[in-house]
């Protein structure tokens, strides 16, 4: 059963509107494990599941981010986009882990995000390499992160374990250009 209570911010002081680093809340986040051998798993679910590594789906209402072979992260902020998706995934031999309460997501404008991440993350984030619609898992200041360059090219979302949310927020703000 989904928890009906609204989720609290992971931060002591949530960012104000207009600040560079924003926290996204009330997201539905699931780790999807596909069956070992089944072609067109995404097609049977009506989902755009990227087969290519480090790619995200184009569906903006329900993002599917490639994590590993036959593993994806499903992210949605709209109830309507998922419907009975969880039941259909299980019926088709897949499995879901609910990470909605386990992740904190920060949204940063793409330009500043490159410079901020470059100060502590070994990923190649140059604009010619890390394109809109790409995603990558890596490490930032000793914390595992997932970076998603949104398809519109304007923003990046950074996923971290919720318990590291405050630490990561402080680190990102320290690395951000002074305002």
């Amino acid at each position: 059963m989904p928890d009906p209570r609204p989720r609290r911010s992971a931060l002591n002081r949530p960012p104000q509107p207009g600040e560079l680093i924003q926290e996204r809340t009330d997201l539905w986040i699931q780790r999807l494990y596909g069956p070992d051998r089944q072609s067109d798993f995404g097609g049977k679910l009506g989902l755009d599941l990227p087969e290519q590594a480090n790619r995200a789906s184009q569906d903006t209402a329900l993002h599917a981010l490639w994590l590993a072979p036959r593993e994806w992260l499903l992210v949605s902020d709209a109830d309507a986009a998922r419907g009975n998706l969880a039941a259909r995934i299980v019926a088709n031999g897949g499995a879901l882990s609910d990470l909605s309460h386990a992740r904190t997501v920060f949204r940063i404008a793409a330009g500043p995000a490159r410079n901020i991440l470059a100060q502590g993350c070994p990923l190649d984030l140059r604009p010619a390499i890390f394109l809109p619609g790409h995603c990558a898992q890596s490490v930032l200041a000793s914390v595992a992160i997932l970076v998603h360059h949104l398809a519109d090219g304007a923003h990046m979302d950074i996923y971290v374990a919720r318990s590291y949310g405050q630490y990561m927020y402080d680190w990102l703000n320290d690395a951000a250009p002074p305002t």
């Binding site: 590594a53 590993a68 070994p122 990923l123 190649d124 990558a136 490490v139």
Partner: peptide
């Protein structure tokens, strides 16, 4: 073989 060239610190 899955993610491409990555730094040793990820491993």
């Amino acid at each position: 073989p899955h993610c491409g060239p990555r730094a040793q610190t990820e491993f």
